[in-house]
Every structure is written in C-alpha cells, then in structure tokens.
Design a binder for these strands. Structure first.
Length: 427
RNA sequence: GGAGGAGUGGCCGAGUGGUUGAAGGCGGCGGUCUUGAAAACCGUUAGACCCGGAAGGGUCUCGGGGGUUCGAAUCCCUCCUCCUCCGCCA
C-alpha cells in the first residue's frame, strides 16, 4: 500500500507505473473522493470540538445544580449529525482503501521498463553438465529409481501433487536441512517454524489479498487460508508492531509447505513436479532500515546463490522488468536453474525488495533512539524452492547407468553418495 | 468441547458514566547537586489523522469492532487473546 500523501503528490509516477504494468486505474475519481473525504472530516471534527465543549458545560451545570436540559437537547441534534457524517466518512474510507489496496508497488529506478522480454540477465554461474546420452526429464528418472510416485499422489489428492519415496523423500528432507543449516549457521538468519495456515489480515499485509484470492486455497467456514509462501507468515511476525531500530536488520528464514491453487496455470508445466499445489520452500526474509534495503537485497540474492553453488547447479541471475514483477515488489531478481531435459533455465528463487509497501500495509515500524518511527523495508527471497531444487538436482546429476549422483554437500544428510535405479519394476 | 477469570500508556498499577490522554510507582531522557558516580530533588517522557505557509488549533485512540448516552476506560452486544479447572487428543 502506498502512502496517501505521497500518492496525492506524485500522481504522474503512479500513472506511469500503471501504464508499465498494463493497469487501468481511475486516479481522477480517487483524487476527488479523497478531497471530499477530507472536507467532511474537517467539518465533522469542528462539530465534535463543539460537542466536547458542551459536554464540559453540562458537567459544570449539573455539578452546580443548574438545569442543563437546553444544552442537552441542542447537543442531541449535533450528535445525530455527527453520527451520520461519521458513517459517510467510513464509507469514503472503505472506497479509498479498496482502491489503494489494489495498486501495486512502484518499481525502483534501476528496474528496466517493459514486459518479461525486457528481463535482464545479470550474471551466470557454472556450466551445464555434459551428457554422453540424452538426459531424461525428472519424472522419468523418478520413476526408474522409484523415488517419485505421481500416479499414487493423484490417487491420494489429485493432479499436481507428489509422493516422494525412500531416498526421494530423504533427498527432499536433506535439501531443506542443508539450506536451513547454511542460512542459519553461515548467513545469520534465525530459523522460524510458523503456522502453515494464515488469516486474511496476514495476507492483506503482504499484498496477496485482496487481488489474488483465486490463487490460494481457502478453508471453508473459517478465516484461514493455506499459506502460499512463508513470506506471509514472516511478514506477519511483526504485523502492527514497532520494532527497536537498533535491532535491524532482522533476518529470519523458515522451511514451510506452500500451497497454490495454480488457478491460472491450466495446461502449463503439467508433466513432472515443476508446478504443484503443494511444495516445500525455504524462505529468507529481512526487515531493514530504508537506507539499507538495496544493499541487503544484493546479499539476499548472494545467500540464495550460495545454495546453488554448493550444490553445483548451473544458474543465471535475472533482473526482472517492471511488467514481470510481483504486486508488492519494487525490485526483483530471479534465480533460474539449468534443466538439462528441457535445455532451459527455470525459476528456482525469487528475491525482492518490497521497500515500505508491505510494512505500510502490515503496520511494521521501527523506532530509532532519537527521532520518529518509520516503516521498515521488507525483503523476501526463496533460498530455495526445495521441490524445484530436488528436480534440478535429479536431472543435473543423472548418470548413464540410471543412477543419481549425490553432491558432496548432501552426502552426510543422505547417508549415501548415489541413488540407484530399481533392479526391476516394483511398487 | 464445557465452566469460570482477566485484558488500561515502555513496564507495574489506580480508575465502574462528566475538565481522565488517563492518578501513583518503576524504567527512559534532560537538569540541579557532586572531583566522578550513586542517592536525593526538579522537569520531561504515546501515536495516527484533519485544518494551517508557519505559529498554532482540532479530532481520534484504555485488546478489536459495534451499540446505548448530550457525554463511555467506565453500561450493553460481539469477536480476539491470555489464565484456571474439567473433558478429549498427537
């Protein structure tokens, strides 16, 4: 959400942003509503001042045993008028708020304008592995090694769910443990294990609601939703709080399941486990001072890259263009990992600086020793999407004999250096 | 799930319809005193919003929301959170 005052004074910037994001918003109507609302407030508040004075007068009269009936009658009418106008103001607030809540964040000046074709490759690490055979897609490898069972997942829950089995299940767990260990021991993040169900207020705070309700699973008859990303819980950690500025930056990370309805993705990535209704993710999150947030974004990206590098996975870093960024982001880097079976890069992490956009919605401030409190900046990044790391690893480390090599850093977690193919078909 | 109790400022804690945005204490900050410190004493110590060029003025906020009333921290309704007991349960 944007600062109303800033919004009023920088309309051209917002109009430009709306154009870049391909949105039609009636700014003129908003400005007029805002003007009327303030007029009403000024008017009603002067009557409240009058009423407050009269209340003192009544108290005084009664105390000295005099009759206050005349003043009370007069104030009755004034109070009725105030009540009516308070209601009108509340309606204005609602309409203005509804409008503000659906305006996305403004992109940072360093973000290239345009659609996804304007995304800029910032750097590239490693090499694609060399195969002297045709690399298989992960669902085939999963089946031949017996570590992934999609038909049975479909039986249990439906399409876009996975059952991991044996070393496959263990690999998922190993990856999550490895990531959490690196972030907590080496990168200074505090591990959080949050609820996987979140309420509406938390989702409004990150900007997931009101616009993206159809992308999530809602629990009927409750105010609860399955979390689409731990970003929701981690932002919610300090919702409606004022933090001591001395403690910034606060760095937290969390392993959670994430749930997406993938409502708009019918027919996209239907094979394999690239796009699932449930996947696990290790999320990194920072609350920072405004002046530090862009520096912190760079280290956040570096923290995510560390994981890919230790796993020996070839990737590239993309700076997203204005039209490809999420709703709350001011600047986003995507990490894209190499998938041999498709010979392309696919997103495995997204790291964003949301500046004060979420903090303003969620009411997260920081108070310095001297001076006024200010909204913090929030940053989030996957470090990494575990499910996608799993499949990238399986594809990149597949061997000619059908086995999967386990990278050095995972062996202590896996208790083996290799996942063997099944000897024969078995359940 | 059932029964009961409680939510006041950074913290503790008064306050059950009328100068109470809120006594008192602690803590914090500034000062006096002191070679320095402590103690003592004095002062100070929320935020959001509206009008205004500013000075300043005003409104709102006692867990959240709604209601009663000329007027609500105080009365009513509702939701949330915490505590105690019973039941159930990983």
């Amino acid at each position: 959400m944007h600062d109303l005052d800033y919004f009023r004074q920088n309309l051209p910037r917002f109009e430009e942003m709306a154009r870049l994001r391909n949105l039609t918003l009636n700014f003129a109507e908003f400005i007029e509503l805002d003007r009327q609302r303030r007029q009403l407030i000024t008017n009603v508040e002067s009557r409240k001042a009058q009423r407050n004075k009269a209340s003192e007068e009544i108290a005084r009269l009664k105390k000295s045993g005099q009759d206050a009936a005349a003043v009370i009658t007069e104030m009755k009418a004034v109070s009725d008028g105030i009540r009516e106008d308070d209601q009108r103001i509340a309606e204005f607030d609602l309409r203005l708020n509804d409008f503000l809540l659906v305006i996305p964040n403004l992109p940072h000046v360093s973000v290239p304008p345009g659609g996804p074709d304007q995304n800029r490759e910032v750097r590239r690490w490693g090499q694609p592995p060399n195969f002297d055979f045709a690399p298989r897609p992960h669902w085939e490898i999963g089946e031949r090694t017996g570590i992934l069972d999609l038909p049975r997942a479909a039986k249990i829950a439906g399409a876009r769910f996975a059952v991991y089995k044996g070393p496959g299940a263990r690999l998922e767990r190993a990856l999550a443990n490895f990531m959490l260990d690196v972030h907590t021991r080496e990168h200074g993040y505090t591990e959080i294990l949050p609820p996987f169900l979140v309420n509406t207020a938390s989702l409004l705070g990150v900007g997931q609601l009101p616009k993206f309700a159809s992308d999530m699973f809602h629990l009927e008859g409750t105010d609860l939703w399955l979390t689409p990303t731990a970003e929701v819980e981690l932002t919610g950690l300090y919702r409606d709080e004022t933090i001591d500025a001395e403690t910034l930056p606060i760095k937290v990370c969390a392993w959670t399941a994430c749930f997406r309805s993938e409502a708009g993705a019918a027919g996209k990535d239907t094979r394999g486990i690239l796009r699932q209704h449930q996947f696990q993710k290790v999320e990194m999150f920072k609350f920072t001072r405004a002046e530090d947030s862009y520096e912190e974004l760079e280290t956040l990206v570096a923290n995510a890259e560390t994981i890919l590098q230790r796993l020996g996975l070839h990737y590239r870093v993309m700076l997203l263009a204005t039209g490809d960024m999420g709703f709350a982001a001011a600047k986003t880097y995507d990490l894209e990992v190499w998938l041999p079976s498709a010979a392309t890069f696919r997103e495995i992490s997204s790291c964003s600086n949301c500046e004060a956009f979420q903090a303003r919605r969620a009411g997260i401030r920081a108070k310095p020793k001297a001076g006024k409190s200010a909204f913090v900046h929030t940053l989030n990044g996957s470090g990494l999407a575990v499910g996608r790391t799993w499949l990238a690893l399986v594809e990149n480390y597949q061997q000619a004999d059908g086995s999967i090599l386990i990278p050095e850093v995972l062996r202590s977690f896996m208790g083996t250096d290799r996942i063997e193919p099944l000897k024969q078909s078995a359940g």
